[in-house]
Amino acid sequence: MQDEEVLAEFRASKALLEGHFLLSSGRHTARYLQCARVLMNPDRAGRLAVALAAALPRDLRKQITKVVSPAMGGVIIGHEMGRALGVEALFVERPTGTFELRRGFALEPGDKVLMVEDVVTTGLSSREAIKAIEEAGAEVIAAAALVDRTGGTVDLGVPFTALIALNFPTYAPDEVPAELAAIPAIKPGSRAQP
Rank of each mutant, 00 (worst) to 15 (best):
T150N: 03
A182Q: 02
G152N: 14
P57Q: 01
A136W: 05
I64R: 08
E100R: 15
K62Y: 07
L52M: 07
G82W: 03
A178L: 12
F99E: 11
A84P: 09
G82Y: 00
A182S: 12
E134T: 03
K131F: 00
I141A: 02
A30V: 02
D155Y: 05
K62L: 14
G152Q: 00
L16D: 14
V92F: 00
R191T: 15
D59Q: 13
A36W: 01
K66I: 12
A51D: 08
V6Y: 03
V87C: 11
D43K: 14
T161A: 09
K112D: 13
P188I: 03
L60V: 10
R37Y: 00
S126D: 13
L60P: 11
R149M: 01
S126C: 12
A165I: 00
A143V: 09
E100I: 12
M81V: 05
T96I: 13
G86W: 09
K62I: 02
D3G: 01
P42V: 15
T153Q: 15
A15H: 11
M81D: 06
A55W: 01
E179T: 10
I76M: 15
R83M: 09
M81P: 03
A84H: 03
C35Y: 00
P57F: 00
V75Q: 04
I76Y: 04
E139A: 14
R11G: 07
G189R: 11
C35G: 08
A178G: 03
A192K: 05
T96H: 15
Y32D: 13
A178C: 10
A136F: 04
E4P: 09
A53Q: 11
I130S: 07
G104P: 06
T121Y: 03
R11N: 11
Y32C: 13
N167H: 13
S126T: 09
G151L: 10
G46I: 00
H79Q: 12
M1P: 06
V113F: 07
V176Q: 05
V38P: 02
A36N: 14
R47C: 02
A178Q: 15
S126Q: 14
H79E: 10
R27N: 12
V116E: 10
R11E: 15
R44I: 07
P42Y: 14
G189C: 05
R37H: 01
G82F: 01
P159S: 04
G152V: 06
L60A: 05
G152F: 02
A143I: 04
A71F: 00
Y32K: 11
A142N: 13
K131A: 10
P194H: 11
I186T: 15
P173F: 00
A30R: 13
K66F: 06
